[in-house]
Amino acid sequence: MTDHPLVSTQWLADHLSSPDLVVINAWMPPVTHPDAPAVFPNAHIPGAVFFDVNEICDKSSDLPHMLPAPHVFSSAMRKLGIGDGQTIVVYDDFGFYSAPRVWWTLKSMGAERVHVLDGGFPKWRAESRPFVDEAPRRVQSHFSARLNNGAVADLEDIRTAIASGDRQILDARSSERFAGDAPEPRAGLKKGHMPTALNLPFTELIHDDGTFCTREELAEAFKRAGVDLDRPVTTTCGSGVTAAILTLALTILGARDLALYDGSWAEWGSRDDTEIATGTD
């Protein structure tokens, strides 16, 4: 097996029959197309299970797809047949969208061997690799969820980071949304960004063919964004999904002391007691 956060389609094809491997189809429709249908019922990688980000979440929160409590997550993983000690490969229908979020969720809940499929299902299908439409049959397994609280930032953590400057805040949204020049796709949110935040649109980390940038390309992208890889970083975005793409890239680069703001702009931009900055300075 591999320790790298990413695995190739060839690697997955070579290991697909491994008894300790489980494949997850991470699903969340884009906020701009909330009614988009999941591909999974009609086509998925053989043996893959379906992880709906909008269902395996904290249903008591008014914010979108917040992390569930550990015992709720354990129950959901058990029903999917995901257990302790397994090697997990996560992919999504778009290449890089919700798969890194599920990767981060599993890692934050204590899973150790979790990877993202580079290029996702589009690359898998483009290479004429096998896919099926029948539901998988997996035996329920025991998953011991142990939340790493340091991996998750909340509203007060962001306020502290802004006031102290001890942590870099890195926003994955587009430069137009970050600057406040474009409207937010979620209704009722203010335009702009958190004071002191830096901006690195997640799209800059993905090649035109849908594969992830190389380590060297990633390092250059973070350098352009003004990120110091030796200092703590908290990632954020619209609702805590594409922020995980930045966290994935930072992990590949060996950065430490990483957190993800789960509420992200869905929380910060909806409140009357949060400070908003605009422009690019």
Results as ranks from 00 to 15, higher is better:
L218R: 02
W103T: 06
P64R: 03
L200W: 00
V39H: 15
D133I: 00
A69C: 07
T235R: 04
L155R: 09
D58S: 10
H4S: 14
M66A: 07
S8M: 10
L117Q: 01
A36T: 06
G47M: 09
G238Q: 06
D133S: 15
G120C: 14
L229I: 07
Y261S: 02
V90P: 07
K79F: 15
L200T: 00
R129H: 07
G210R: 05
L6W: 08
S144E: 12
T2L: 12
V89F: 07
L229A: 10
P122V: 15
D93T: 09
W104H: 08
V7I: 09
G119Y: 03
F202W: 04
L189Y: 02
G188E: 09
K191G: 04
K223F: 07
C213Y: 05
A145Y: 06
A243W: 01
E112C: 02
D154F: 08
M1C: 04
D154K: 05
G188F: 13
P130K: 13
V72Y: 06
H142K: 11
C57G: 03
F94V: 13
Q140A: 15
V152K: 04
T32W: 14
I158F: 13
H142M: 12
L258Y: 01
L67V: 03
P29C: 01
N25S: 12
D3G: 13
V114K: 02
N42W: 02
M109Q: 06
K191S: 12
V116E: 05
R173G: 09
L189M: 10
S18L: 08
L246W: 02
I206F: 05
N199E: 06
R173M: 11
P30Y: 14
A182P: 00
V139Q: 02
L229E: 04
S264W: 02
M77S: 03
L253N: 03
E220S: 13
R215V: 01
N149P: 00
S74D: 03
H207L: 10
P46G: 04
D171F: 10
L117A: 03
S174E: 04
V89A: 05
P70S: 08
L250D: 00
A38L: 05
L189E: 01
T247P: 11
F121S: 01
K223N: 08
H115L: 05
G238L: 10
V22Q: 01
R125W: 00
K79W: 13
K59D: 06
G83R: 06
R256Y: 04
V241Q: 00
R125H: 03
D228L: 09
